[in-house]
């Protein structure tokens, strides 16, 4: 899922400074799972901002709402009235949700309350890790189900760099070397021979580097 982290409160306060009526809008999907922008975080942030506003002698008004998915028109339209009443919407959804609001409500100021961080998962409660870079050309079938694009700091395709030590990454000794993981996993599967082939040059045009990507499914279009 998409993982996000709430922005520092000082940055949020600076973003909302020019506005009086602010709708804090959460999202019930990815950011709820990553404890960054669900209903609970909306409530906590609203309380903090109300207190800060009062202490600073401002009379800002904070409304709260959370929709199931901010990245779909139908869901955000459910709070259309609250959006219309606000001077600005502080979205706690990922960057997709923020942009969906901006596109749907072209006259409304929409501000991001979180930093969208990566595509990943929780490996334990409170520990979220990156697993996918959405590079558009999945090679997990060749690498034992461990992604060197997302999990190697240099996105190397043909094995570890010389900085891999004790199976850890040179960037951070707490980080597993993706190529050690790939090697160990293929060894376990009895598929080490798969490592011998030179990996083709990566076609980065399928990644973001080819510009914003688009999928059109003619079979599904109405």
């Amino acid at each position: 899922m998409i993982k996000a982290q709430q922005k520092p409160i000082a940055e949020i306060k600076a973003l909302i400074a020019p506005y009086h009526r602010i709708l804090i809008l959460g999202c019930g999907t990815c950011v709820t799972i990553s404890f960054a922008g669900g209903e609970k975080e909306v409530g906590l942030l609203a309380s903090s901002l109300r207190i800060a506003s009062a202490m600073e002698g401002q009379d800002k008004i904070f409304a709260e709402a959370t929709v199931q998915r901010q990245c779909e028109w139908e869901f955000i339209d459910a709070v259309a009235e609250q959006i219309q009443q606000a001077d600005a919407v502080l979205s706690l959804a990922c960057g997709i949700g923020v942009q969906a609001l901006a596109e749907r409500y072209p006259d409304k100021v929409v501000l991001p309350g979180v930093n969208t961080t990566f595509l990943g998962m929780a490996v334990e409660h409170g520990v979220l890790v990156e697993r996918c870079r959405a590079c558009g050309d999945c090679i997990l079938g060749l690498t034992g189900g461990v992604c060197p694009i997302a999990r190697c700091a240099k996105n190397l395709l043909n094995g570890p760099c010389g900085g891999s030590q004790n199976g850890k990454c040179e960037v951070n000794p707490e980080l597993d070397c993706a190529w050690q993981l790939i090697y160990d996993r293929l060894a376990r599967l009895g598929q080490l021979d798969r490592l011998a082939a030179l990996m083709p040059y990566k076609d980065w045009s399928k990644d973001y580097d080819g510009g914003p990507r688009k999928i059109v499914r003619e079979d599904l279009r109405l």
Partner: peptide, 8 residues
Amino acid sequence: RIEPQLVK
């Protein structure tokens, strides 16, 4: 961990 280095 020499094995992956030798692959490379």
